[in-house]
Design a protein around this nucleic acid. Structure first.
Lengths: 239, 239
DNA sequence: CCGTGCCTCGCCATTTCTGGGGAGTGGAAA
DNA sequence: TTTCCACTCCCCAGAAATGGCGAGGCACGG
């Protein structure tokens, strides 16, 4: 049965592990400390790149990636629009694809109980920390009622650790957009065409094009739509 | 002196206050429970609209708004780019405008010690929860070391309460996109043009256009770029 | 049974965007 | 002081997207 005996010790452990540079190992230790089936940490980069770290079986992780399950996984999609932690039972499993996905997951060793905590950072960074288990509904509800807030803290500390480790290999930070570029991108994202945006900003359409192109260049985007998508996912513009 | 004697009771109090519909009152009670000078809750809507709730004096709040201090307040600006809670001492106070602002704040009853916790939600929502006090540096550091994690939880619960109260507006739920529409939108958001997307999905370019237009219609978008922006901000596609 | 939604395909004309050039100002940092 | 960056303006031609017209088949539920 799930337990959580010593929060202080767990958090200290998460803070202190300096030798371990591998998130998977930290996740495994955390899972053992909690006495639950699995710990999953899912990370969506500002570039849209996905990074996962789970104690699931390699077979399931490979299957998940191969089938691009992150595009239909209700846990990911649901939490991406949510503010607060959420129990898997309260997710929307009505879609057929979602139920197929769930059956597939259960068949590959995923527990039927889960509690997922969304974590967000600047520039549209998004992470999802999940505790997974298999037990009676009532037992799980009791566990969450008692330790849900502890899991929030654990998620924060785990995420902090992940950022520490990940900071070493992602030093490059995209140049931020200039104010006018932000204006231009924002208005384009609101659906206005170039003529309207230029009029709105009280500049010539040619000048506007310079902004769009320089923003596109900074964002490494192939076209305007791509630039908008990147600017949004990096949190450079808010629509 | 700052104290935090009974976290459970405080969190329960935050959860349970059903009668109080006024955040300011909740903030005042929370401040009293913590025994510190002030509680500040700052909210930035996805539309960029600002909303604040503080136990500061009315004079200071009015002054803050009148002078648009939120544009130069290093606490706001710094936390907006940060992932983790941060002590005011570690902010960047080097800019002259920032120091002037600080002097002005201290002169209006703001404590010199502070601990600010950024909270983020979907669609670029951003909130900042701050505990403010005035005391010796060492005392404050000790308080944060001991209760920093408690403040994280309190911030979360307070934010949840604020969302409950502010949840008057109906989030119009748009019809979800069909699988093919999601495919099309996703690939467009990745920067491919219509010919490439059509080839990628192994359909004719005209069929692709039907998807794009029906997605645009469902999303109430004016053009493709707008549709991508809306699909992203509603979490219908993940890029 | 019939409507509704989803998936697939085609043509035409017009508007809009993109990719190359160029030039000049001012401010801030190095 | 020089160098960089942000901001502003201009032309041209080709590529791409858009708007509007049409068609049929398949699956699901009232």
């Amino acid at each position: 049965m799930a337990r959580l005996v010593d929060l202080d010790r767990i958090l200290e452990d998460l803070d202190a592990t300096t030798g371990l540079e591998d998130l998977s190992e930290i996740a495994a230790r955390l899972r053992d400390a909690l006495g639950i089936w699995h710990i999953v940490y899912h990370w969506v980069d500002s570039d849209g790149e996905q990074f996962g770290c789970a104690t699931y079986s390699d077979a399931w992780v490979a299957r998940y990636n191969a089938r691009n399950y992150h595009r239909i996984d209700p846990v990911i999609l649901g939490c991406f629009q949510r503010f607060h932690p959420v129990d898997w039972k309260r997710m929307d499993w009505s879609a057929r694809a979602a139920r197929h996905f769930l059956d597939d997951a259960l068949a590959h060793g995923v527990g039927d109980q889960g509690y997922s905590i969304p974590i967000r950072g600047p520039n549209g960074q998004f992470a999802l920390f999940t505790a997974n288990h298999s037990c009676d509904d009532d037992d799980w509800a009791a566990f969450i009622a008692q330790h849900g807030r502890d899991l929030i803290l654990i998620a924060h500390y785990f995420n902090r650790k992940a950022l520490e480790i990940g900071a070493k290999r992602q030093p490059e930070q995209s140049r931020s957009l200039s104010p006018r570029e932000v204006d231009a991108m924002t208005l384009l994202a609101l659906g206005y065409n170039r003529a309207q945006v230029a009029h709105s900003l009280a500049i010539s359409e040619h000048t506007l094009r310079v902004y769009i192109e320089s923003a596109r260049y900074k964002l490494g985007a192939l076209n305007t739509t791509h630039a908008i998508a990147r600017a949004m996912s990096r949190g450079l513009i808010v629509v």
